[in-house]
Design a protein around this nucleic acid. Structure first.
Lengths: 165, 165
DNA sequence: GCAGATCGTCTGTCAGACAACATATATTAC
DNA sequence: GTAATATATGTTGTCTGACAGACGATCTGC
């Protein structure tokens, strides 16, 4: 009973530990772990997302994302591209320098994360990762039909779009 | 490979979701989720911990704990007790009002947490909790021999102590 | 063309994180 | 016993991040 409520404690301790490890791993990258997550997400999605889509996916505030992207753009790692069909939105994409930087960072971060579970065997660590990702994905769906649907529709939209840059 | 690195994303999304849910569940409790974790920890340990022990256990800064405890004490939920053998330390304990409040809060928080995993079945949710708690406990041991050892030695110390209040 | 919604930005405010210093007490070396 | 050092806590000041609210630009439906 009471022990069930240690769940929040475990989540918090683990999250702060992850933040600390990744902050160290990414070095001078603007906004540390958050900056890394943005680069990593941009590389993983086949279609450049808008800022609203990205802020929803990462569960951070729109107004925060504005200045985080500012700093990543100033560092030359991402760029805001105008959308041909909706001039309100900015679609975010990695620059070549951003891709190179990310390739380096991914190795460092993976290494840092691999040291995060001294108390767990390899199989348990893998199971934990899988469950966490499924839980987080489930949350997104419950949140409103944002994630899958917006991404899919955005991809479909873009497929129809003339191949202009 | 790249998908492995969604681990940080999942952890962050889940943690923020937990914070939001528990913040709402505990209402006007000083410092929200953090305040709850402190009350819950104090109720779970058989021996009143010092502030240093508690800050280590919860992985929060000493100086933060100072004013958090201030506010909980002002609300009449916890009290700082002098230690008979070391007058530098303050041992933290729930007041009677704190115990009553916690009993109520535990129900609310458990309910809020039960809605956290719309994407997971009951067995998977239980497995996730177990793995998270083991991972967090493992971290603590790796951290230096703080947790188990200090708690155990504190308990032993206290056992020798004259039964005075 | 107009009303209302949406996207990104900007501004101001507030809480939390954290370093640096201060104070009281304990421990150790001599 | 005294001085030097270490520890526990408290205090202050600073910095970052979160977030509400307002704004201009733009899209959509009518």
């Amino acid at each position: 009973m009471a022990d069930d409520l240690d769940f929040g404690w475990a989540l918090g301790v683990l999250f702060r530990s992850w933040q600390t490890a990744v902050t160290e791993a990414v070095g001078a990258l603007p906004h540390g772990p958050r900056g890394f997550q943005i680069l990593n997400t941009l590389a993983s999605t086949e279609h450049p997302p808008t800022q609203a889509e990205l802020s929803m996916h990462l569960a951070i505030d729109r107004t925060v994302l504005t200045y985080v992207i500012d700093d990543l753009a100033t560092a030359g790692l991402v760029e805001r591209r105008p959308d041909a069909r909706d001039r309100r939105v900015r679609r975010l994409a990695l620059t070549a320098a951003g891709s190179r930087r990310l390739a380096d960072l991914r190795g460092r971060v993976a290494e840092a994360e691999s040291g995060l579970f001294p108390g767990l065997g390899g199989a348990d660590a893998a199971a934990l990762r899988t469950l966490l990702e499924r839980a987080a994905a489930g949350l997104h769906l419950g949140d409103g039909e944002h994630d899958a649907c917006t991404v899919v529709s955005a991809i479909l939209d873009d497929a129809q779009r003339p191949a202009a840059g």
